[in-house]
């Protein structure tokens, strides 16, 4: 069943049918989430209205990690099962994950200036997220360095899995070392430390951003499948022309 769904042609068919629904769901949840974040959620007792940056910053950070985890799972699919769709999924995830990491870094800087008094410090959390961004950038660069897609996928998969060691460092940096960045407020052992009227808008935003990421990822995967078909067709065409020239 799973192998059948993962056949590139079958994938194009079912993803094409699913994509409009996923896009619609994204617009709906993001719309509700943004409305809640701007108008429903109260200001914070110590940070005031600045807290609203959280509704972008935190989902972006979660998605930066989530997309990397997805890319790592695809990398295992590439290395172990040599599945072409795993290669495609890996390649499609990298720029989207890099974009979310960048959004996280920029909104974090804009939040840090009014609250901490600085845009940037080299503490463990901020530095490990910057490393995550650089790893994403390196992965994108490596994809463009090797021309043959399946060779590129294998090289990138190894880089991706090595870079995956950074994920627990990003997550637990605020617990292992003292940092300027606060510890986790939502995913923590003793439950969230955000008041429910602020937590629900955050969770709706996180859901909306997740749908957004999945929509973009599926769209990018379809584009990549088509791009590979065009590549194969043009190679075949070139070979056919060669043969004709040799025959003449």
């Amino acid at each position: 069943m799973l192998t059948k769904l993962a056949n590139p042609s079958t994938f194009l068919r079912w993803s094409g049918a699913l994509l409009p629904w996923l896009a619609g769901l994204t617009v709906a949840t993001l719309g509700i989430g943004l409305w809640m974040a701007w108008f429903v959620a109260p200001a914070d007792y110590q940070q005031g209205e600045t807290i609203r940056i959280m509704y972008i910053h935190v989902p972006a950070a979660w998605l930066a990690l989530f997309l990397y985890a997805m890319m790592s799972a695809s990398a295992i699919g590439t290395l172990v099962w040599r599945h072409p769709l795993a290669d495609v999924s890996q390649k499609a995830a990298a720029p989207i994950g890099a974009a979310f990491t960048l959004v996280c870094l920029i909104t974090g800087a804009l939040w840090g200036k009014p609250m901490w008094g600085t845009y940037w410090v080299w503490d463990a959390r901020l530095t490990s997220v910057l490393v995550l961004f650089l790893v994403y950038a390196g992965i994108i660069a490596l994809w463009r360095t090797i021309e043959d897609p399946s060779r590129a996928a294998r090289a990138v998969a190894i880089l991706t899995l090595v870079g995956a060691l950074n994920l627990p460092i990003v997550k637990f940096s605020v617990d292992w070392w003292n940092t300027l960045h606060q510890p986790a407020s939502v995913f923590r052992m003793d439950g969230p430390t955000i008041y429910p009227t602020m937590l629900y808008p955050l969770l709706v935003m996180a859901l909306g951003v997740t749908f957004l990421a999945l929509t973009m990822h599926m769209y990018a995967m379809r584009t990549e499948v088509y791009r590979r078909r065009v590549r194969t067709l043009s190679i075949l065409e070139a070979e056919r022309l060669d043969e004709r020239r040799l025959a003449a």
Binding site: P42, Y45, Q46, Y195
Partner: peptide, 18 residues
């Protein structure tokens, strides 16, 4: 020569804090 503020992980509306 530098003082940075550090806030904790607790978020709540002002009324609740009061």
């Amino acid at each position: 020569d530098t003082v940075l503020a550090r806030h904790d992980e607790n978020y709540m509306p002002r009324e609740v804090a009061d």
